[in-house]
Design a protein around this nucleic acid. Sequence first.
DNA 1: AAAATAAATACAATCGATTGTATTTTTAAA
DNA 2: TTTAAAAATACAATCGATTGTATTTATTTT
Lengths: 341, 341
Amino acid sequence: MENSKVTIHDIAKALNIDSSTVSRALNNNSRVTQKTKNRVNEKANELGYQRNLLASSLRNNKSNTIGVIVPRISRHFFSSAIAGIEETAYEAGYNVIICQSLEQLSREQKIIQTLSENRVDGVLISISMETKDNHNLLILKKNGTPIVFFDRHLDIPGNSNVLIDDFQGGFDATEHLISQGCKCIAHFSGPQELEIYKNRFEGYKSALEKHNIELNENLIISSKLMESDGIESAKKLLSQPIPIDGIFSANDVAAIGAMQYLKGEGIKIPEDIAIVGFSNEPISSVIEPSLTTIDQPGFEMGKIAANLLLTQIKDKSGSTVAETIVLKPILIKRNSSKRLI
Amino acid sequence: MENSKVTIHDIAKALNIDSSTVSRALNNNSRVTQKTKNRVNEKANELGYQRNLLASSLRNNKSNTIGVIVPRISRHFFSSAIAGIEETAYEAGYNVIICQSLEQLSREQKIIQTLSENRVDGVLISISMETKDNHNLLILKKNGTPIVFFDRHLDIPGNSNVLIDDFQGGFDATEHLISQGCKCIAHFSGPQELEIYKNRFEGYKSALEKHNIELNENLIISSKLMESDGIESAKKLLSQPIPIDGIFSANDVAAIGAMQYLKGEGIKIPEDIAIVGFSNEPISSVIEPSLTTIDQPGFEMGKIAANLLLTQIKDKSGSTVAETIVLKPILIKRNSSKRLI
DNA sequence: AAAATAAATACAATCGATTGTATTTTTAAA
DNA sequence: TTTAAAAATACAATCGATTGTATTTATTTT
């Protein structure tokens, strides 16, 4: 219970050798003979030695830690992405610090400050809904900490991103509704400062255009896409004298809120109104009717993003070319949109 | 882009004073005059100085960081608990490192190792399903790092815990099923090494006993309580020639798996079989029929646990008495068990 | 066996911030 | 004005690990 802080100096003293030799022995340096290494390792075990990573990182100017910032860890997409990130990072010997901005710019700012103070080697971030520019990230930029965006990104030249094709996703979702006979399709969108929501919206518009359906501004409702926003948005739609027969929501959560409300109002889904979401939350396959949605491969995106980041970290010359990898979204057809057989 | 590493020495040099004065100025020490403090702060801003927490923690032998280990962050209960932990910790000026064991003992071990190497000031943990003793935690114990268990705990004398009354929860869930007319109630349990599952099981037994229902060992199915386990368990139950009319599952996830399977088999819930879960996952209120369950106040538990831990951290004398706080579970009655009106 | 080379280890500085002690400067008292 | 006391700042060691350089020891060559 007592040997709280065994250091290499304690090992050195016990073996009557120098601490530099101990350090090299522990790091398996060729300048130390195998015999000495064995003695050191034994003694280290015996004393319960544990490397002090603070000291090590300080000296090496490298923490072997990357920071991950997501809006909220409870979202399935983000926790999958984190799983992918962790797998890749751990394999490469990196630790991961997970942080959630809870969609607040101020929290995001504070997190970045802390990560920077802790000298993380790189940052993976999916920005909050309040984030409109890279102001927050300048701290990191300034001291040369690599950043890779995944999913919710900012369009910064020279920065790597891992995205899915939100335009295509929006297009596919909308065209699917059209293919099911919908003529009057509303869209729940998120903050337009976020590329992903802008692009999903663009996809929606493009699909309408292709099928000669006129865009009706009254059918576009922007919000933060929480469940309550979905309810509110659905309410707003019903209050208008427009015969809506389809909704494409830019995320599942809002879609589910809307579904619950509409069901409560006696509206039949998909017969009266067909609904398509975005993200493929686990809940979406369970709800009744099950929700048609666009799948985002979170785990895969996390792995790719972490790999991009690690490449940049390892390349101390900073000559790595920024890369933007765009994954294909996949439409998952379920019952909430099944109007034709 | 260039001033990657501004240190107090750079500030000192720029102002032609000593770095010790800079350090004290930045820390608002009374030994430095206000005028100097102002000059230092200005220059620090100008140069974009950022404290190196690695150096600071090393010198102070205090990282102002706590580690949190949970089985998986995607579970609603755990992400709520984390939210509570973060709120409390940040208020007290502590950073939080979130880690997930993914129910694997080996991962838990590695995480603890890393947290210890990073010299966290304390650890909050909800153990994995594979964890059967405190072996993993000895590293922390040895160097005197305080540990507080929340929810999934080990019974270690002298250790603080924040729990809910799992026995009561199990009892209430089971008695509720009995009150709805169930006579033959199965139980999905988790690993019996975990106190929580043992206690939920005990509650189940106690409720049966109170109502003079004989315990049938064939109705007790242990698993890791994943969704697939719920399906398997339901299958197993149906394969037996026993007229089951109720299931108390030790978590919602397995309950939902079972529900899906049973519905697929044409069994009516709750008419044929009533089901009660445990945890109150968000999905449980949305599924049809909505799932009766036991609510665990995750956010609150997180706050309490963090407070207990911070108290122990601040008390360097180590004289803080271990405390076990048990919260009351709340039965949330929904449709999956509504057989009588 | 002496000299030359290689191998193993010791010494000392460093990473950046902090803090006890010493020194200088300022202010107050005599 | 001189001296004592207080205030402000400088010096130097420290936290634990790492690493370039110097030194010692072992091995090889002649």
